[in-house]
Design a binder for these strands. Structure first.
Ligand SMILES: [Mn+2]
Ligand SMILES: [Mn+2]
Ligand SMILES: [Zn+2]
Ligand SMILES: [Zn+2]
Lengths: 149, 149
DNA sequence: TCTCGGTTTAGACTCAGTCTAACCCACGTG
DNA sequence: CACGTGGGTTAGACTGAGTCTAAACCGAGA
């Protein structure tokens, strides 16, 4: 492995190429990893592993299910992705590394990001007996239909 | 199956015997359902289905795994229990029907209730585009050890 | 006693996720 | 060049939570 430049705080939403992003996080690039990165590090769909698999197969038909799982878990370990469990039997992957909340559409199951600044949770630090490392608000409901104009 | 008296109500919703609770929710009582109810409607452990199965087998060794799953799902459908998905591959059951938050001990996986009144989330109603039916704060961290007098 | 509907049961089945062991392939070495 | 080495990739076996099926069970009437 060649020497890497001093690492900057790399959030996945920057404008780096996937190859650079991977290298900055100590992940050796490969055709499969780049194809997976290209989708999963830029999506806002909160896809499951099998959704990633389906999407990536279009660009790289020979990719295997095992590689998709291996790569997603590797990205999580290396801090490129976060995994969330918000519904039964479905781990979803999220390239948005900044703290934020999640809204789950009860009709479709779709997951939407809610900006950290859109809500405020008070009194977390004062909770008796709990040393809180991280938290988020998980909201469920329907999307408001009122849309245009 | 002998008639029970409401002798030791330990949780909020349980001034009633299990049989009465079940009937009030339109669930026909049976030995299996009563044994399951006796544990799962009074615990604060947030057990998984297989934890319930293990516990109930002690009181009723012939009970089957299918019955435990059937009964837990029935209780959820009838509003006696809530199911939560807070970690991978583990649906947990919660007899605490009042709104509350959850703290997850990252070291043990144990789930602790956080009273609704202990936290306040502001601005939920003003969220653009989302019609929120319910929400909770999910917190993760370590239990504080300091327990001095 | 017989019938009937709901309940329980063992075991088959599904599906997400993990594991294994073979295979591939770029690279470095003699 | 051959060769070895060390990832990375792959198909398929495997695991474990949860569901489904079809038969057995059971209790309240007729
Ligand atoms: Mn994982
Ligand atoms: Mn369920
Ligand atoms: Zn997100
Ligand atoms: Zn709870």
């Amino acid at each position: 492995m060649r020497p890497t430049k001093p690492t900057k705080p790399t959030t996945a939403s920057s404008v780096l190429s996937e190859a650079e992003l991977l290298e900055r996080h100590g992940v050796l690039p490969s055709a499969q990893r780049l194809a997976i990165a290209q989708y999963v590090l830029r999506t806002d769909e909160h896809p499951s592993a099998d959704q990633v698999f389906a999407k990536v197969k279009r660009a790289l038909p020979m990719v295997s299910r095992a590689t998709v799982y291996n790569t997603l878990n590797l990205f999580v370990d290396k801090g490129l992705l976060r995994a969330h469990v918000l519904a039964e039997g479905k781990v979803v992957f999220d390239p948005n590394l900044a703290p934020h909340h999640h809204f789950i559409d009860e009709e479709t199951g779709a997951i939407h990001d809610v900006p950290w600044s859109a809500l405020a949770v008070s009194n977390v630090d004062a909770l008796e007996g709990f040393d809180v490392h991280e938290y988020q608000v998980v909201l469920r409901g329907k999307l408001k239909k009122a849309r245009s104009t």
